[in-house]
Each structure stands twice: as structure tokens, then as C-alpha cells.
């Protein structure tokens, strides 16, 4: 399968890429790792006239400690996130999530920024990004802005990014002591895409939940928070029965996807089950 012919640019700076976006507008697509965009182009579901390849911009691939948290360049690959000692220690479930994406060849090319900007409803990263309360830093010509994870995922394959904006960096805040993180998914056996994937970031003290954020992917059109579970658990005892009861609320308010892989009813069941599992895991890690 061959993509439609396109004009190719490989800018060497974000400013140059932003200027190309201004020039070409909606006819252009940004190419990150290419593992979502190129398959769409090969099937001609996407037919951009201009492709702006971000691979030659050297300062978009990095992982840095920042105020006790992390700053991750948008072109950083899953493989680099999975193997980063900084990510493993400061946001363990982010490293684990990156290691659960597809397979090692895909993880060697696929990037955090590409995944988030694509906002595939079955992508793994949006769940943990929501649970961690990450911030997305973007650039356009002459301007920068920061978008909270809660505002970033808008709809199916749709984010808050404007057509002239480039996602530069993902900022992960410092986690308070006594915080446990976890991600688990029921994946498609062939593609490993999340049929349902749940992430939790939970802070505990004296056996009680101080705060918790839960991200859900795969279930509906876009990744979303499980706010009713969060509200039910905050301040509550972290025993198995309380967690199980709270997890029953995880399917509230979601318009579940239904496809050849799983019915809406089954996805709702998986959402409750995996929420319970990741909460137990996050609580045990919170110590």
C-alpha cells in the first residue's frame, strides 16, 4: 500500500515547523513516529498534501527532571520512556504503560507526543497522562501555551491542539510521598491496543485515600477521568471491599464503544474490573 504523493519538509527547529504549518494550514500533517499517521496514509484514510517531519528537530527528544517531576520532549519514543530510570522512579506507571504499547519495533519509533496528538480512543498513554495530571506545552508562531490533560482530549481523534500548534513537551508534576501509580489493560491480542485500559495515581496516608486520579482509555470515544470513583474513594479507607464498591462506579457516564472486539456491555464490565485491579495495585504501591 502506497500513500498518496505529498510534499515533504524536514524542518530543523520548532520555529521553522510552526512557520511551515502557518504556510500550509489544514493541508499539512505533522509526522512524529509515524506509527499512526503512516498506516492511515497507506490506507488513504489520511491524504495530506504536505508532510512536516519533526524527526530532524533535535531538541524535541529528551527526558529531564524538573521540580521533582518530569519534562518529556514530544518526540521521545516509548522505548526511551520505558527504559528511563527517571521515569521509572518519578512516574513508574508511565514507564510501565510505555512498555505495554504494541511491540518493541513500534515502541522504537512511536512517540509520546504523536500518541497524545493523535488521541486514538484505544491508545494507552492518554489514561496515564490523565491520571498523572500532566500538562501539554505547545508552540505556534510566536506563541506558547499550556493545556491541562483534563482539557486536552476533546473527542474521537480530536484534541485541543489548534491546526497551527505543535505539541512540544509533556510535563509530569511531582507526586507527593505515599503515592502509588498503576496501569493495566485488557489488550487486543493481535495489535495490543487497549480494549479497555485504566490508570490510577493514588496518594495514601494511614490506610486512607488522600487523593486519587483515574484515567480510562479504550472505553469510549476519548480518554476520560473516572470522577465518581475518585469522589467515592477520597477520604475513604483503602480496604478491598471499599475499593471494590467504588470501582463499580467506573462505568458511570461513559458512552461505551461497541465493535468486533467487545460489546459495550463487556467494555463496561472490563472498566469496572480493571479499575478495581489498578486501584488495589496503586494502593499497595502507595504503601
Amino acid at each position: 500500500m502506497i500513500p498518496r504523493a505529498f510534499e515533504y519538509h524536514a524542518p530543523t527547529s520548532v520555529a521553522e515547523a510552526a512557520s511551515l504549518l502557518d504556510q500550509h494550514g489544514d493541508s499539512a500533517k505533522l509526522l512524529a513516529g509515524g506509527h499512526s499517521l503512516l498506516p492511515l496514509m497507506k490506507l488513504r484514510l489520511a491524504q495530506p498534501e504536505v508532510v512536516i517531519d519533526l524527526a530532524k528537530i533535535s531538541d524535541l527528544s529528551y527526558i529531564r527532571q524538573s521540580n521533582g517531576g518530569l519534562s518529556i520532549g514530544a518526540m521521545t519514543t516509548y522505548a526511551d520512556i520505558e527504559s528511563s530510570a527517571d521515569v521509572q522512579s518519578l512516574a513508574p506507571a508511565l514507564a510501565e504503560t510505555a512498555g505495554m504499547v504494541a511491540d518493541r519495533q513500534v515502541r522504537n519509533m512511536g512517540t509520546i507526543g504523536g500518541s497524545l496528538a493523535h488521541s486514538d480512543p484505544a491508545g494507552d498513554l492518554p489514561a496515564i497522562i490523565l491520571a498523572l495530571g500532566a500538562q501539554m506545552v505547545t508552540s505556534s508562531s510566536g506563541a506558547h501555551r499550556t493545556i491541562a490533560a483534563d482539557d486536552f482530549f476533546v473527542d474521537l481523534f480530536t484534541t485541543a491542539l489548534q491546526p497551527n500548534e505543535i505539541l512540544n513537551e509533556i510535563q509530569i508534576p511531582a507526586l507527593p510521598s505515599g503515592t502509588g501509580t498503576a496501569y493495566a489493560k485488557f489488550g487486543n491480542k493481535a495489535s495490543h491496543y487497549a480494549i479497555v485500559g485504566i490508570a490510577a495515581v493514588l496518594t495514601a496516608s494511614g490506610g486512607k485515600c488522600q487523593s486519587v486520579r483515574i484515567g480510562i482509555t479504550g472505553a469510549g470515544a476519548k480518554a476520560t477521568r473516572a470522577t465518581s470513583v475518585e469522589n467515592a474513594l477520597t477520604g475513604a479507607s483503602l480496604d478491598g471491599a471499599t475499593i471494590k464498591a467504588a470501582a463499580q462506579l467506573a462505568s458511570d457516564g461513559i458512552d461505551f464503544n461497541e465493535d468486533v472486539h467487545a460489546s459495550a456491555e463487556y467494555r463496561a464490565h472490563l472498566t469496572r474490573l480493571y479499575t478495581e485491579r489498578v486501584l488495589l495495585e496503586a494502593a499497595s504501591r502507595a504503601g
Binding site: A10, G34, H35, D53, N108
Partner: peptide, 12 residues
């Protein structure tokens, strides 16, 4: 690094 060459542009 191992990559799937059907999903990489030659220009890359």
C-alpha cells in the same frame, strides 16, 4: 534499533 520498515518513510 529494530523497526518495521513498512511503516517508515525512506526519507526518514
Amino acid at each position: 534499533k529494530a523497526v518495521k520498515s513498512c511503516t517508515v518513510l525512506a526519507v526518514r
